[in-house]
Amino acid sequence: MDISPDESIFLHIGPVALNATIVYTWITMAVILAISWLGTRKLTSESKMSRWQNLLEVLILGMKNQIRSISHQEPDKFLPFIGTLFLFIAVSIIMSIIPVYQPPTGSLSTTAALAICVFVAVPVYGIAKHGIIGYLKYYLKPTPFMLPFNVLGEISRTIALAVRLFGNVMSGSIIVAILLSIAPLFFPILMQALGLLTGLIQAYIFAILSVVYIASATRVHEEKEQKFEENRKGKE
C-alpha cells in the first residue's frame, strides 16, 4: 500500500512522471471549475436564481464572513486565495468517498505546496499593505535579536501547516485501508464518514490558519506601527 499518491505513476512523458497526485489534482480542479461554470453560466442579479448559483453564493458569502470575522479586514482581497485553499482541500476530501479517488491532500507534496503558497502569501500581502521595508521591520521587532526566531517561527508554522493537513488526510485514508482488510463491512464506512468530517474540519482549519497568518502580517504590523507612532508622539 502506498502512503502517498505521489508514488502512483500514471504516465511518463520524457523525464516527467505524472503521478496520481497531479492527475487527481487536475480532476479536482476540473470538478471545482465545472461547479463554478454550472453556477455562473446563468448568473443573475435578480432575487430568483439557480440552485447552483445559490449554493455558490452561500459558500462565498460564508467564506467572506469568516474571513472578515477573523481578520477584521475587508475580505475581498483575501477571498480568492483563502477561498481556493478551502475549496480545493474540501472538494478533495469530499471526493475521497469515491473508491478509486485518492485525495491529493493526502500527499505531503500537495500540502507542502499549499503551505509554501501560504508561506509566500504572508509576506506578499504584508508587503502589498505596508511596503517591503515596513514589512521587514516586523522581523526586527521587538528587538533585532529576535530576527532568527521570527524567521524560524514563520518556517516552522508553515511546516506545521503542511504536516497537519497531510497527517490528517493521509491517516484517514490509511485507517480506512487498514480497516478494509480487517473488517471489510460497515466499520470502514463509519470511519470514512468520520474521516470526511475531520477532513472538512482540517480544510477549515487550514484556511482559517492561513487567514490568521496573512491577517497578522497586515493587521498586527499596522497596530504595532500605530502604537509606536503614538508612543513617539507622546515622547515628543
Partner: peptide, 24 residues
C-alpha cells in the same frame, strides 16, 4: 515523502486554480 517536482506542479496548479476561480 516529498516529491519536489510534484510540489512545484501543485504550486502551479494551485495558483492556476486561484487565477481561474478569481475570474470565473
Amino acid at each position: 515523502l516529498i516529491n519536489w517536482f510534484t510540489v512545484f506542479a501543485q504550486i502551479f496548479n494551485f495558483l492556476l486554480l486561484v487565477f481561474l476561480l478569481k475570474h470565473f
